[in-house]
Design a protein around this nucleic acid. Sequence first.
DNA 1: TGACATAGGAAACGGTCGTTTCCTATATTG
DNA 2: CAATATAGGAAACGACCGTTTCCTATGTCA
Lengths: 192, 192
Amino acid sequence: MGRPRSFDMEAVLARAVPVFREHGYDGASIDHLREATGLTSGSLYKAFKDKRHVFSAAFSHYVKDRRQQLAQRLGGALTGRERIAETLRFYLESASGTEGRQGCLVLASLIEATTLDDPLRDALREALDGNRTAILTSLRDGQRDGSIRGDLAVEPCADLLLSLLQGLRAVGKLHDPADHAALVATALKMLD
Amino acid sequence: MGRPRSFDMEAVLARAVPVFREHGYDGASIDHLREATGLTSGSLYKAFKDKRHVFSAAFSHYVKDRRQQLAQRLGGALTGRERIAETLRFYLESASGTEGRQGCLVLASLIEATTLDDPLRDALREALDGNRTAILTSLRDGQRDGSIRGDLAVEPCADLLLSLLQGLRAVGKLHDPADHAALVATALKMLD
DNA sequence: TGACATAGGAAACGGTCGTTTCCTATATTG
DNA sequence: CAATATAGGAAACGACCGTTTCCTATGTCA
């Protein structure tokens, strides 16, 4: 009971995410969040315990949203190899234009990893492990469906692809990646 | 003329670098720098115009130092292919342990790229372009010495390797890379 | 419909930010 | 050796940081 919230929590988080993507956890100020969300700082502190909790919720929202977007794009891709290729294309597009300039929240958090507390670092680890597991699954599926050689060392391959995807987002903060098709083709040679 | 400086500028920069590597430009406070360098904030402002100039000098120092370290390791590697392999090993080691946890200043700056001013962003671009050019040179040398196929598309390959190297540093903030040899072997397949 | 629990929002909190001021110390130069 | 230009360093600056307080508004429930 009591007076109900006049704003949509989901929408506020969606507006908070770009702030953290651009400034990181430490660099994002309550004033930035106030501007982006339209809430007063008082209301922010009614809805969240503190800045840390805003970040935590925004981080979860971002990871969930990215997972959904990727899952949707992977829906049509049949073979494991094609799923890896589509994942690469997804990241190449995310690393381009305004999206690329805004940056990846996972990557931004990674850079701040040493200054984050344990629960946040665990959430970050989970997000990254999730990405790695997804890649690994696609690789193993590819081996099963014949699109990837059966004797490929999938573990180092997954590690490498995980780093490559994050690296694309990093360089994408400055430059748009050129010639997506050639980049995908070259990267896929790691699977041969 | 006048009273000469009582500290070594080079040494102060070497002590300032880890502060920026850990906290980034925005996150590094004058107090952090004061602690790390042993200088009072007044002396810092005597030696540098402002925090931006401390960062600029520290950034140059870091890039120069990294270039030298890599050049030294590349001294013995004869073929272009071996130079690429050695570069990968260099980054894998840099991404490990306390060095990996401390992070790469280029990568940290990349994340903050959108909030940096034009001159700093230009310096960052130069550093990154330098890395890319070095990779490209090794690839072309490899084609000349026969260690890399002559019909390899070197441009996308260089882009990919550049992103991969940065990505290794990113993930290295959280996890040590495992099985360096397998990772190098897998990455080198992009050159086949 | 009146009591109440919570939201909304302005204002202020102490702390830290980057930076400047001001005074003293000291090596260099004529 | 006196004059001077700069370094060293303590203290203070206004601005902004994350957070809290306090008062009003408004929905819910008995």
